[in-house]
Design a protein around this nucleic acid. Sequence first.
DNA 1: AAATAATATTAGATAAATCTAAAAAATATG
DNA 2: CATATTTTTTAGATTTATCTAATATTATTT
Lengths: 220, 220
Amino acid sequence: MELTTAEENYLKAIYHLSEEGKKSVSTNDIATQIQTKPASVSDMLRKLGEKEVIQYRKYYGLQITALGMQLALQTIRKHRLWEVFLVDKLHFAWDEVHEVAEQLEHIQSPLLIERLDAYLNYPKFDPHGDPIPDAYGDVRTRPRCALNEMDIDQIGQIVAVKDSSAAFLRYLDKVGAYIGARIKVLDKVEFDGSIEILVDQKKTLFMSKDVASNILVLQS
Amino acid sequence: MELTTAEENYLKAIYHLSEEGKKSVSTNDIATQIQTKPASVSDMLRKLGEKEVIQYRKYYGLQITALGMQLALQTIRKHRLWEVFLVDKLHFAWDEVHEVAEQLEHIQSPLLIERLDAYLNYPKFDPHGDPIPDAYGDVRTRPRCALNEMDIDQIGQIVAVKDSSAAFLRYLDKVGAYIGARIKVLDKVEFDGSIEILVDQKKTLFMSKDVASNILVLQS
DNA sequence: AAATAATATTAGATAAATCTAAAAAATATG
DNA sequence: CATATTTTTTAGATTTATCTAATATTATTT
Ligand SMILES: [Mn+2]
Ligand SMILES: [Mn+2]
Ligand SMILES: [Mn+2]
Ligand SMILES: [Mn+2]
């Protein structure tokens, strides 16, 4: 089964929106995610339904099939492996990789991905802390929670970001937050949900609830 | 100026056919080269003419413009850098790289190519001995001649292959001919143009004129 | 429950890239 | 040089992916 580049992008968006724990994925959500119009989405959903990567009943909603899941995970695997390559080998900053990976993920060559994976030493996570599915599409998920949900005095380690936009990542660079940093919650402000944390037992950091909710932590 | 993937492929084909020293590039030649129909070529030539990467007068022929040359060389640069990456870093065989490079060459990211070039240590030649244009599109050409045109007792070094097909490259692997090999012409058969050479002062090799004409040598 | 709003789909266009078949132009041949 | 052959272009379809505008369906509010 072969998907076009556009089909792969739609399927990936559907997969991601499905994972967000929403009851169902709407046409408008998909349109927003891939920056297109709802009319285009409707048309594509029909096609993806015909290819049996989703189950689609118009006006009712859709569900990704096992086949669709498999294919989406392959594309995500490629995307994340390329991101690791760009950061680890070509010294891209973690806020510079997304657009390029968005292109590279569509290169068709099983051998290439197999070799790239080996070359990168079978990484388990991408530069944003997201898990890399293996060749069979299996993803190992770690228990993680948003930083703003932690309590005072709790400790943990930053393991991922929810928002991978360049603006957000550059902000984290600026204040000195990074994947792998050990943190402790020093204070939380009831009023606005903002939070004060200690990074690597050295540096104090204040951040808004909005920022904290996009930082994912492995509690310890 | 932005070209589509198809336009880049056509322009690259036109560039290569122009370089082959022919008086002019025909619609049929292009169709053969990129495995499409003459009707499709005519249509694309009109478009490339409008974009001013070629000068095109129907029925009369075409000429690549300075702009077209520049863009073609950028694509060729990308293609060859990726080939080096695949062979040097991912341990692809030299007969496995072409199709993948044919896809990778269309990835749009100046930063990526700049970094890839640095990562590969600014290689001057690809795995088939073809020169890699620099970022400005400059190509350093070496004087080289086809092996079948050499005289008895002449010595030299294999520097490139004219035919990069997997079949030909695997044949060379099998008989032990490779880029960089030092050779000496031991004998030439007048009748069929076949040739006998000594490789690395060790191994004797017989080959047909057809094979020899696809091996390029730097004479010394 | 009827009216209104929101959401989703269809209808009809457009652009890119391809094809087959027909027509036109250039080239080769007797 | 007139005719035949080859080469090239055009005409008309098809597929994919997109859009706007109109319509249909579902959800929300009085
Ligand atoms: Mn993509
Ligand atoms: Mn990522
Ligand atoms: Mn290509
Ligand atoms: Mn090459």
